[in-house]
Design a binder for these strands. Structure first.
Length: 753
RNA sequence: GCUCGGAUGGCGGAACUGGUAUACGCGUUCGACUUAAAAUCGAAUGGGGAAACCCGUGCGGGUUCGAUUCCCGCUCCGAGCACCA
C-alpha cells in the first residue's frame, strides 16, 4: 500500500501546471468573468511568511472555487518593489537595489509556486521595472496636466534618520513608520496630489461598497468631513482680517479671543515691538517640538500676539493669541475661542486668565458663510530617496517646472555609486550629474530629483493586470472593460492609505475617460494577522517566526499548510499559530488519501444525505468566506465516511470540494477516479430524512426528544399529545400545563407550566 | 477622550434571520494493532453529583414560552484616530 507523500505529489502537479499553464486567462470565453487579486507583496529578502500564505490562499480558494464553477477567472500576481529596505541594503552593501530586487523576486516566485497557486504567471508585474514605471510617470503627468499634481512650500514631516519627507499616514506615534526615528517638521517645497478635490465623492460612495464596516468607518473618519462656517474678524489697527473656521457659528456671542497656529502665514502682521521677540521665540519652540512631546504633554501653551480683533456679534475688542493647540493644516489655521462651550478653549482661558462668557445661541448663518472642511489633507508624494519612481519634471533656469514630454518616458533611474541621501534635502539622484541635464523644446533644463511615494506605484497596478505587456498604453480599454473592476481584493493592511489612494485615482481616470467605472474594487476581504504560538507578533528579534517553507519541507507539504491556514479561524480575525493543529490537518488530508487510494469503495449508498448536506454546507460557507467551517464540514464528512463506508461518488465529491484548499492531493485523487473537477450541486430532496427529531422543552429546558415522521411534522396536536404522554415529560407536568408552543421550523415544542 | 471590534470547555474555535450551547481541530484518558515505539484505528471528554438532578456563553438588570444571539447599564481586552475648533 502506498503512503500519502505530499512532497512527491505536489512536485508532480506543480510541474504539470508549469507546463500546461491551466490558469492562463483570456477575454475570449462566453462565461461570466471573475477577477481576484491580493494586495501584491513587497518581496523582502526573508521570503514568504505565514501572513502572505494566509492572504494568498484566501484568494486562491476563491479563484479555484469560481474556476470549478465554470467562470472565466483571472488571478494575476505582482511585486511592489520600490522602497526603503532595498535601498538601505544598497547603502550598507553597495549592491544596486535593482540587483537585490531581482534576486528577491526570483525567490518569491519560486516560493509562491511551491504553494500551488492558480496564478496566471504570464501577467507578472513589478513596479520598479522601467516598462511599468514608465506608465506610473504617465499617470503623474495626467494628474499634473489637470492641476492635481502640484508643488507647495509647507511644513512637512521629516525623518532625520532616513533623510526624507513622510506623508501624514507614514508617521506613527510621532515616529517614522520605517526606521522608528522621531520625526520633526521642516519647511520645504514638495509635490502633492490633490486628493481633497475628490473628498466628497470618496466619502459618499463608501456606503455602496461591499467592504468590511471597519474599513469603511476608518476611511470616513480619515476624510473627516465637517460642516460649519467661516467668519471674518477685523483686526484693530489695519492688519489683514482673520478668517476662522468653526462648526459652531451660533456660539459667536461667547467668542472672547482668537487663536492662530504658530505657522499662521500672516502672523508677522499681528506682532508689535513689545511682543515680537516672545512670539517668534514661541513659534520656534513649537515647530521644534516633536510629535511625541505634543502627544505626551497636551498642556496648553501660547502667547499674546499684541493685536486685537473685533467680534462682529458683540463689537467687542478681543485679544489674538498664538498657540500650538490650533493646527495650521486644518480649516484656516485660526479659530474663535468660545471658552464657555469648548473644553480646549476653556482650559486655555483658565490658564491665561482670559474672559469666559456664557452665551445665548444665535442663528447659524448670521455672521459667517457656510463652509465644509475635511481632516484629510492633500497627499504628499515627494520622497528624497533613490529607490523610487523619478518624478517626470524638469526645471528651467528660472526654476519653473515643466513636464517631461510623454514620448521621452520613462525617465530612467540613473546609476550612481553612492545611494545614501544627505541633509541637502535632495535625493541621491542629484549625484548623477549627466542625468540631471535634459533638453526640452531646445531649452536646457535640470531634472527633478525627488522620487514618488511608493503608494503612487500601487495606485494603478490593478489596471495594469488587464494588459500587463501593453507597450502603447498604461492599460488597454477593452481588457479593462472586460475584467474590471476587481471582484475580490484581499489584504490585511493599508486600510486608509492605499485603499483610499486607489479609489482617488480611479475617480480621476474615470473623469479623464480612461476608466469605465468609478470604484476599482467591488469586494474587499480584510484578513487578520497570524501571530506566533505565544500569541505575540512574529519577529526575527524574538526568534518566534514560523517559516512556511519549513512547514512544507518538514514533510507536511503545501496542501496541509494551505488548509491549516484556512482552518485556523475566521479569516478576518487574528490567530495564533499552533504547530499541533497543523498535525491535525495533516491527519485529515491523510485520511482523505486513504479513502481514495487504500480503501475498498462501498457498493451500497448509505451516505447520500450527508453527501448532499456537505456539498451545500461547503458551497455556502465559501460564498460567505467561512473557510474555517468549510474545512470543518469536510472533516466531519470524512469522519462519517470512515464510519459508514464511502462510495466512489463520495470520494469524487470529497476531492472536488476539497480542491480549492488542497489542490495537489485532490488533483491526484481526481486523476485516479478519472473525473473532472466540476463543482458539484446538491439536491434539496436529499436534505430531508424520513424521521425527524423533535425536541421537547419544559419552560425552555430540554426534557425529552421525540422521533417523528416527516409527514407528521405539520400535526401539532399529535406531537403535543405524544410529548405530554412521554414519561420524562410527565414528571414535570403534574401541576398542570399552561400552554404549549410548537415551532415546526425549529422542530421544537415548549411546554409552559 | 472619540470610533469600531471582541469576551463561549484545559486550548483554537462552532451555533446561518432568538429555538437541542460547546460542531471541527488540538490536548488528555482508555482500548485495539505491535516484541516495543511511532504511525494508524476505535471509544470517552463543560463543571458538580453515587444518582435523580443542579449549574453553566465576562458582570448586573430587562424583553420573551424560550436569549451566546435582542434592549439598558457596567467590567476587561484588542484595533484605529487622537488638541480637526
Amino acid at each position: 500500500m502506498e503512503r500519502y507523500e505530499p512532497l512527491k505529489i505536489e512536485q508532480k502537479w506543480q510541474k504539470i501546471w508549469e507546463e500546461t499553464k491551466p490558469f492562463k486567462a483570456t477575454e475570449e470565453t462566453g462565461q461570466p468573468k471573475m477577477m481576484l487579486a491580493e494586495m501584491f507583496p513587497y518581496p523582502s529578502g526573508a521570503g514568504l511568511h505565514v501572513g502572505h500564505v494566509r492572504n494568498f490562499t484566501i484568494v486562491d480558494v476563491l479563484t479555484r472555487f469560481y474556476t470549478q464553477q465554470g467562470l472565466n477567472v483571472l488571478r494575476p500576481f505582482g511585486y511592489d518593489t520600490f522602497g526603503l529596505p532595498a535601498e538601505n541594503y544598497a547603502i550598507k552593501t553597495g549592491t544596486a537595489p535593482q540587483e537585490v530586487t531581482k534576486i528577491n523576486i526570483t525567490n518569491f516566485r519560486k516560493q509562491a509556486k511551491r504553494l500551488g497557486y492558480a496564478i496566471d504567471w504570464g501577467r507578472e508585474i513589478n513596479t520598479s521595472d522601467p516598462e511599468y514605471y514608465k506608465w506610473t510617470q504617465w499617470c503623474f503627468l495626467q494628474l499634473y496636466k489637470k492641476g492635481l499634481a502640484y508643488q507647495k512650500e509647507s511644513y512637512q514631516w521629516w525623518c532625520p534618520e532616513d533623510q526624507t519627507v513622510l506623508a501624514n499616514e507614514q508617521v506613527e506615534n510621532g515616529k517614522c513608520w520605517r526606521c522608528g526615528h522621531e520625526v520633526e517638521k521642516k519647511k520645504m517645497k514638495q509635490w502633492f496630489f490633490k486628493i481633497t478635490e475628490y473628498a466628497d465623492e470618496l466619502l459618499e460612495e463608501i456606503d455602496n461598497l461591499e467592504w468590511p464596516e471597519k474599513i469603511k468607518t476608518m476611511q470616513k473618519n480619515w476624510i473627516g468631513r465637517s460642516t460649519g462656517a467661516e467668519i471674518d474678524f477685523e483686526v484693530v489697527g489695519g492688519a489683514p482680517r482673520i478668517t476662522v473656521f468653526t462648526t459652531r457659528p451660533d456660539t459667536i456671542y461667547g467668542a472672547t479671543f482668537l487663536v492662530v497656529a504658530p505657522e499662521y502665514t500672516a502672523l508677522d502682521s499681528l506682532l508689535t515691538d513689545d511682543t515680537r521677540e516672545k512670539v517668534l521665540d514661541y513659534k520656534a519652540t513649537a515647530l521644534k517640538k516633536s510629535e511625541i512631546e505634543r502627544q505626551e504633554n497636551k498642556e496648553k501653551t501660547g502667547v499674546f500676539t499684541g493685536s486685537y480683533a473685533i467680534n462682529p456679534a458683540t463689537k467687542e475688542k478681543i485679544p489674538i493669541w498664538v498657540a500650538d493647540y490650533v493646527l495650521a493644516g486644518y480649516g484656516t489655521g485660526a479659530i474663535m475661542a468660545v471658552p464657555a462651550m469648548d473644553d480646549r478653549d476653556h482650559e486655555f482661558a483658565e490658564k491665561f486668565d482670559l474672559p469666559i462668557v456664557e452665551t445665548e445661541l444665535c442663528d447659524r448663518d448670521l455672521f459667517g458663510t457656510p463652509k465644509t472642511t475635511y481632516r484629510m489633507r492633500d497627499w504628499l508624494i515627494s520622497r528624497q530617496r533613490y529607490w523610487g519612481c523619478p518624478i517626470p519634471i524638469a526645471y528651467d533656469k528660472d526654476g519653473n517646472p515643466h513636464p517631461i514630454p510623454e514620448d521621452q518616458l520613462p525617465v530612467l533611474i540613473p546609476e550612481v555609486d553612492d545611494y545614501k541621501p544627505d541633509n541637502s534635502g535632495r535625493s541621491a539622484l542629484a549625484k548623477a550629474k549627466d542625468w540631471l541635464k535634459v533638453t526640452i523644446d531646445g531649452e536646457e533644463m535640470t531634472r527633478e530629483t525627488d522620487t514618488l511615494d511608493g503608494y503612487a506605484c500601487s495606485s494603478w497596478y490593478l489596471w495594469r493586470y488587464a494588459s500587463p505587456h501593453d507597450k502603447d498604453a498604461a492599460w488597454d480599454q477593452d481588457a479593462i472593460k472586460y475584467w474590471e473592476p476587481v471582484d475580490y481584493y484581499c489584504g490585511g493592511d493599508h486600510a486608509v492609505a492605499h485603499l483610499l489612494y486607489i479609489r482617488f485615482w480611479c475617480k480621476f481616470f474615470a473623469d479623464e475617460g480612461y476608466l469605465p467605472f468609478r470604484e476599482p474594487i467591488k469586494r474587499l476581504l480584510y484578513n487578520g494577522y497570524i501571530n506566533a504560538p505565544d500569541g505575540k507578533k512574529m519577529s526575527k528579534s524574538k526568534g518566534n517566526v514560523i517559516d512556511p517553507l519549513d512547514v512544507i519541507n518538514d514533510g507536511y507539504g503545501a496542501d496541509t499548510l494551505r488548509t491549516y491556514e484556512m482552518f485556523i479561524g475566521p479569516y478576518d480575525q487574528d490567530a495564533a499559530w499552533d504547530p499541533r493543529s497543523v498535525g491535525g490537518v495533516y491527519r485529515f488530508l491523510n485520511r482523505c488519501w486513504t479513502l481514495a487510494f487504500a480503501t475498498e469503495y462501498s457498493k451500497e449508498d448509505k451516505t447520500i444525505n450527508i453527501r448532499h448536506k456537505t456539498i451545500k454546507k461547503v458551497t455556502e460557507d465559501i460564498h460567505r468566506y467561512n473557510f474555517n467551517t468549510a474545512v470543518a464540514a469536510l472533516m466531519e464528512y470524512v469522519n462519517e465516511l470512515y464510519k459508514i463506508g464511502a462510495t466512489t461518488e463520495d470520494v469524487v465529491i470529497l476531492a472536488k470540494l476539497l480542491k480549492p484548499f488542497a489542490p495537489h492531493l485532490t488533483s491526484e485523487m481526481l486523476e485516479k477516479l478519472n473525473t473532472n473537477d466540476e463543482w458539484p450541486k446538491w439536491d434539496e430532496k436529499y436534505l430531508v430524512s424520513d424521521t425527524v427529531e423533535v425536541v421537547v422543552q419544559v419552560n425552555g429546558k430540554l426534557r425529552a426528544k421525540l422521533s417523528i415522521n416527516q409527514a407528521d411534522l405539520s400535526d401539532e396536536e399529535k406531537i403535543t399529545q405524544l410529548a405530554l404522554s412521554d414519561e420524562k415529560v410527565k414528571k414535570y407536568t403534574d401541576s398542570g400545563v399552561k400552554k404549549t408552543i410548537f415551532v415546526p421550523k425549529a422542530k421544537i415544542l415548549n411546554i409552559v407550566i
